[in-house]
Protein backbone atom coordinates (compact mmCIF):
# COMPACT_ATOMS: atom_id res chain seq x y z
CA UNK A 1 0.00 0.00 0.00
CA UNK A 2 1.24 3.40 -0.92
CA UNK A 3 -0.18 6.53 0.61
CA UNK A 4 -0.85 9.54 -1.58
CA UNK A 5 2.21 11.63 -0.89
CA UNK A 6 2.39 15.41 -0.90
CA UNK A 7 3.52 17.05 -4.12
CA UNK A 8 7.15 17.26 -5.10
CA UNK A 9 8.76 20.29 -3.44
CA UNK A 10 10.04 23.22 -5.47
CA UNK A 11 13.61 22.76 -4.23
CA UNK A 12 13.69 19.16 -5.51
CA UNK A 13 12.50 20.41 -8.90
CA UNK A 14 15.16 23.10 -8.84
CA UNK A 15 17.81 20.46 -8.14
CA UNK A 16 16.46 18.35 -11.00
CA UNK A 17 16.76 21.37 -13.29
CA UNK A 18 20.40 21.63 -12.28
CA UNK A 19 20.92 17.97 -13.13
CA UNK A 20 21.13 16.47 -9.68
CA UNK A 21 20.66 12.67 -9.99
CA UNK A 22 19.49 12.45 -6.36
CA UNK A 23 16.59 14.78 -7.07
CA UNK A 24 15.77 12.66 -10.11
CA UNK A 25 15.76 9.54 -7.97
CA UNK A 26 13.48 11.02 -5.40
CA UNK A 27 10.99 12.04 -8.10
CA UNK A 28 11.22 8.52 -9.49
CA UNK A 29 10.42 7.07 -6.08
CA UNK A 30 7.48 9.40 -5.70
CA UNK A 31 5.88 8.66 -9.07
CA UNK A 32 7.01 5.30 -10.42
CA UNK A 33 4.22 3.11 -8.99
CA UNK A 34 1.45 5.55 -9.82
CA UNK A 35 2.69 6.01 -13.37
CA UNK A 36 3.21 2.28 -13.83
CA UNK A 37 -0.31 1.31 -12.80
CA UNK A 38 -1.84 4.21 -14.70
CA UNK A 39 -0.09 3.07 -17.90
CA UNK A 40 -0.89 -0.59 -17.16
CA UNK A 41 -4.63 0.12 -17.05
CA UNK A 42 -4.55 1.61 -20.52
CA UNK A 43 -1.95 -0.57 -22.24
CA UNK A 44 -2.85 -3.84 -20.49
CA UNK A 45 0.73 -5.08 -20.76
CA UNK A 46 3.22 -5.11 -17.90
CA UNK A 47 6.14 -4.81 -20.29
CA UNK A 48 4.68 -1.79 -22.04
CA UNK A 49 3.78 -0.14 -18.73
CA UNK A 50 7.38 -0.59 -17.58
CA UNK A 51 8.61 0.92 -20.81
CA UNK A 52 6.32 3.90 -20.33
CA UNK A 53 7.96 4.53 -16.95
CA UNK A 54 11.39 4.36 -18.61
CA UNK A 55 10.48 6.58 -21.54
CA UNK A 56 8.76 9.16 -19.39
CA UNK A 57 11.57 9.49 -16.86
CA UNK A 58 14.25 9.55 -19.54
CA UNK A 59 12.41 12.38 -21.28
CA UNK A 60 12.05 14.17 -17.97
CA UNK A 61 15.80 13.95 -17.47
CA UNK A 62 16.70 14.96 -21.03
CA UNK A 63 14.45 18.01 -20.87
CA UNK A 64 15.23 18.92 -17.27
CA UNK A 65 16.74 22.29 -18.20
CA UNK A 66 13.47 23.35 -19.84
CA UNK A 67 11.41 22.54 -16.75
CA UNK A 68 9.11 25.47 -15.93
CA UNK A 69 8.84 25.70 -12.16
CA UNK A 70 5.82 28.00 -12.31
CA UNK A 71 3.67 25.26 -13.86
CA UNK A 72 2.26 22.14 -12.22
CA UNK A 73 4.85 19.36 -12.24
CA UNK A 74 2.09 16.78 -11.89
CA UNK A 75 0.53 17.98 -15.14
CA UNK A 76 3.93 18.23 -16.83
CA UNK A 77 4.80 14.61 -16.05
CA UNK A 78 1.39 13.57 -17.32
CA UNK A 79 1.93 15.39 -20.59
CA UNK A 80 5.16 13.50 -21.25
CA UNK A 81 3.59 10.18 -20.31
CA UNK A 82 0.44 10.87 -22.32
CA UNK A 83 2.35 11.27 -25.57
CA UNK A 84 4.02 7.90 -25.08
CA UNK A 85 0.83 6.15 -23.96
CA UNK A 86 -1.14 7.56 -26.88
CA UNK A 87 1.48 6.44 -29.38
CA UNK A 88 1.46 2.90 -27.99
CA UNK A 89 -2.35 2.75 -27.82
CA UNK A 90 -2.56 3.84 -31.45
CA UNK A 91 -0.16 1.08 -32.34
CA UNK A 92 -2.14 -1.49 -30.37
CA UNK A 93 -5.38 -0.45 -32.05
CA UNK A 94 -3.70 -0.96 -35.41
CA UNK A 95 -2.13 -4.28 -34.44
CA UNK A 96 -5.39 -5.60 -32.97
CA UNK A 97 -7.50 -4.71 -36.00
CA UNK A 98 -7.73 -8.34 -37.10
CA UNK A 99 -8.66 -9.56 -33.63
CA UNK A 100 -11.69 -7.26 -33.62
CA UNK A 101 -12.61 -8.22 -37.18
CA UNK A 102 -12.65 -11.85 -36.12
CA UNK A 103 -14.92 -11.03 -33.18
CA UNK A 104 -17.26 -9.21 -35.57
CA UNK A 105 -17.29 -12.19 -37.87
CA UNK A 106 -18.04 -14.64 -35.07
CA UNK A 107 -20.60 -12.71 -33.01
CA UNK A 108 -23.66 -11.10 -34.53
CA UNK A 109 -23.37 -7.88 -32.59
CA UNK A 110 -26.62 -6.00 -31.98
CA UNK A 111 -27.57 -3.11 -29.70
CA UNK A 112 -27.62 -5.41 -26.72
CA UNK A 113 -24.26 -7.12 -27.27
CA UNK A 114 -22.54 -3.89 -28.35
CA UNK A 115 -23.59 -1.91 -25.31
CA UNK A 116 -24.09 -4.25 -22.42
CA UNK A 117 -21.72 -7.15 -22.84
CA UNK A 118 -18.23 -6.85 -21.43
CA UNK A 119 -16.20 -6.73 -24.63
CA UNK A 120 -12.91 -7.33 -22.83
CA UNK A 121 -14.16 -10.60 -21.39
CA UNK A 122 -15.85 -11.53 -24.65
CA UNK A 123 -12.51 -11.29 -26.47
CA UNK A 124 -10.92 -13.43 -23.77
CA UNK A 125 -13.76 -15.92 -24.11
CA UNK A 126 -13.13 -16.18 -27.88
CA UNK A 127 -9.47 -16.80 -27.13
CA UNK A 128 -10.40 -19.61 -24.74
CA UNK A 129 -12.65 -21.18 -27.38
CA UNK A 130 -9.82 -21.03 -29.93
CA UNK A 131 -7.78 -22.95 -27.35
CA UNK A 132 -10.41 -25.70 -27.40
CA UNK A 133 -9.99 -26.29 -31.14
CA UNK A 134 -7.85 -29.19 -32.37
CA UNK A 135 -4.25 -27.85 -32.62
CA UNK A 136 -4.13 -27.83 -36.43
CA UNK A 137 -7.43 -25.91 -36.73
CA UNK A 138 -6.36 -23.40 -34.09
CA UNK A 139 -3.03 -22.85 -35.83
CA UNK A 140 -4.63 -22.28 -39.23
CA UNK A 141 -7.36 -20.04 -37.83
CA UNK A 142 -4.74 -17.85 -36.12
CA UNK A 143 -2.57 -17.65 -39.23
CA UNK A 144 -5.48 -16.75 -41.48
CA UNK A 145 -7.58 -14.54 -39.20
CA UNK A 146 -5.17 -13.02 -36.68
CA UNK A 147 -1.88 -12.88 -38.59
CA UNK A 148 -3.53 -12.13 -41.93
CA UNK A 149 -1.79 -14.73 -44.10
CA UNK A 150 -3.55 -15.87 -47.25
CA UNK A 151 -4.66 -19.46 -47.72
CA UNK A 152 -1.91 -20.08 -50.28
CA UNK A 153 0.77 -18.62 -47.98
CA UNK A 154 -0.42 -20.89 -45.19
CA UNK A 155 -0.40 -23.94 -47.45
CA UNK A 156 3.24 -23.11 -48.37
CA UNK A 157 4.22 -22.54 -44.76
CA UNK A 158 2.68 -25.74 -43.42
CA UNK A 159 3.20 -27.82 -46.57
CA UNK A 160 -0.50 -28.66 -46.80
CA UNK A 161 -2.83 -28.59 -49.79
CA UNK A 162 -4.91 -25.39 -50.09
CA UNK A 163 -8.05 -27.50 -49.93
CA UNK A 164 -6.94 -28.95 -46.59
CA UNK A 165 -6.19 -25.50 -45.20
CA UNK A 166 -9.62 -24.27 -46.25
CA UNK A 167 -11.32 -27.29 -44.74
CA UNK A 168 -9.60 -26.73 -41.38
CA UNK A 169 -10.52 -23.06 -41.45
CA UNK A 170 -14.18 -23.73 -42.25
CA UNK A 171 -14.42 -26.30 -39.48
CA UNK A 172 -12.80 -23.93 -36.96
CA UNK A 173 -15.11 -21.00 -37.82
CA UNK A 174 -18.15 -23.25 -37.68
CA UNK A 175 -17.25 -24.51 -34.20
CA UNK A 176 -16.63 -21.00 -32.85
CA UNK A 177 -19.80 -19.50 -34.35
CA UNK A 178 -21.96 -22.31 -33.00
CA UNK A 179 -20.48 -21.97 -29.53
CA UNK A 180 -20.82 -18.20 -29.48
CA UNK A 181 -24.28 -17.87 -30.96
CA UNK A 182 -25.71 -20.44 -28.62
CA UNK A 183 -24.88 -18.10 -25.73
CA UNK A 184 -26.60 -14.92 -24.62
CA UNK A 185 -23.46 -13.87 -22.75
CA UNK A 186 -25.42 -13.50 -19.50
CA UNK A 187 -22.28 -14.09 -17.49
CA UNK A 188 -20.43 -11.42 -19.45
CA UNK A 189 -22.83 -8.54 -18.81
CA UNK A 190 -21.34 -5.25 -17.70
CA UNK A 191 -24.15 -4.42 -15.28
CA UNK A 192 -25.57 -6.83 -12.79
CA UNK A 193 -28.83 -4.80 -12.74
CA UNK A 194 -29.65 -5.76 -16.31
CA UNK A 195 -29.40 -9.37 -15.34
CA UNK A 196 -31.76 -8.99 -12.40
CA UNK A 197 -34.45 -7.32 -14.51
CA UNK A 198 -34.96 -10.53 -16.39
CA UNK A 199 -36.31 -12.35 -13.38
Amino acid sequence: MQQAKPNIGKNILLQLKEGNPKAFNSIFRHYNQRLYFFALGYLKSEKEAEEIVQETFLKLWERREHLDLTLSFHAYLFKIAFNFIQKRLQRQVKDDELKHELADELVNFDQHTSNLVNYHHLLQHINRLIGQLPPRQAQILKLRKLDGYSTSEISDMLRLASKTVEAHLTAALKFLKEKLNAEKFDDLLLFVLTLQKKF
Binding site: G41, Y42, S114, N118, Y119, H120, H121, L122, L190
Partner: peptide, 8 residues
Protein backbone atom coordinates in the same frame (compact mmCIF):
# COMPACT_ATOMS: atom_id res chain seq x y z
CA UNK B 1 -11.65 0.84 -20.44
CA UNK B 2 -8.99 1.20 -17.75
CA UNK B 3 -10.68 -1.30 -15.45
CA UNK B 4 -11.54 -3.83 -18.19
CA UNK B 5 -15.26 -3.17 -17.88
CA UNK B 6 -15.97 -1.74 -21.30
CA UNK B 7 -18.44 -2.54 -24.07
CA UNK B 8 -17.75 -2.92 -27.77
Amino acid sequence: FFSNRYSR
